[in-house]
Design a protein around this nucleic acid. Structure first.
Length: 279
DNA sequence: CGCCAGGCTTCTA
DNA sequence: TAGAAGCATGGC
């Protein structure tokens, strides 16, 4: 386990001796678009219908706006604290490229986000940049989500399924608006059953997600990795294609297949900041 | 200003 | 079945 004790005092949950948890790296590496950095260096976001604030305090992290029961039922899994990154990274260390990527951003963890939100945010991510995706998601929540503790929930499929492209215009999602509406209609109507997808084998789960207009292989794979805990799924975006061409022309090492998606996040972040394959 | 962005659908051959 | 064009918008 990558932490020691969990305690609660004065409505603050303390997770002590946390290992591999750099908030700048976790929240800004392109896997999520909701966490906002505050002046005191803490981060806040609404997830699972609650406004959570996370703050670093030496070797500990402090969680505001929650309690110890919610830590075990929600946030432990959300921050992927059921997985030992220290052990997994010992395995990755045999690979020189992965070693370099891990050295560049050693504190990355892959979050387990909510399926519907993950699906929508990665629909919005296509042919787009991270800065602008963040703005689109923010405007989507502010216009159509529900206010909680000064923040906004991610709008439910039912809240979006009755909207028109014009209704979504304040989001400025461009051609992606029609994709969001189709996703909302299919999920709210049960044509795409996110609960069922949780128990499907990965290939069938991918087939379900790609029924949605505007969802192809890449968006489906990001949804599976970041929203359905499929650590073996390795989304291939432009950056990962460059990484593969440059460093793994013979394919990704099969001994890492079980954690290929996690490895992908280290490689993606590294490649983007090093401009791998661009010249 | 032009180029490009965690792609996808549609058109063309 | 493969490859290219078009897509909305805005960051740089």
């Amino acid at each position: 386990m990558d932490f020691n004790l969990v305690s609660e005092k004065d409505s603050v949950v303390t997770v002590s001796d946390i290992d591999i948890f750099d908030m700048d790296e976790i929240f800004c590496c392109g896997q999520c678009f909701r966490w906002e950095k505050q002046e005191d260096m803490s981060y806040t976001a609404v997830a699972h219908g609650k406004l959570l604030r996370v703050k670093r305090a030496g070797r500990n992290i402090l969680l505001y706006g929650t309690n110890i029961d919610e830590f075990y039922t929600i946030w432990k899994d959300y921050f992927d604290l059921n997985r030992s990154y220290s052990r997994m990274k010992e395995l990755f260390a045999d690979d020189p490229i992965l070693s370099r990527a891990m050295e560049y951003a050693p504190g990355i963890r892959v979050l387990n986000q909510e399926p519907w939100e993950t699906l929508c945010t990665f629909i919005l991510s296509q042919n787009n940049n991270i800065k602008r995706i963040t703005g689109l998601v923010k405007r989507l929540c502010e216009n159509f989500g529900e206010e909680v503790d000064g923040g906004f929930t991610f709008p439910a499929p039912e809240a979006l399924s009755t909207l028109s492209v014009e209704d979504l215009s304040p989001v400025r999602a461009g051609f992606r608006a029609k994709y969001i509406i189709d996703a909302a209609k299919k999920v709210a109507g049960g044509e795409v059953d996110l609960e069922k997808i949780k128990s499907l084998p990965t290939e069938l789960a991918r087939d379900e997600l790609t029924k949605i207009y505007g969802v192809g292989r890449k968006v489906a794979d990001c949804t599976l990795l970041f929203g359905f805990k499929r650590a073996e799924v390795m989304p291939m975006d432009v950056w990962m294609k460059r990484v593969m061409a440059e460093f793994y022309p013979g394919g990704f090492p099969p001994e890492y297949a079980q954690f290929a998606g996690i490895a992908q996040q280290y490689l993606f972040h590294y490649a983007r900041h090093m401009s791998v394959g661009k010249e």
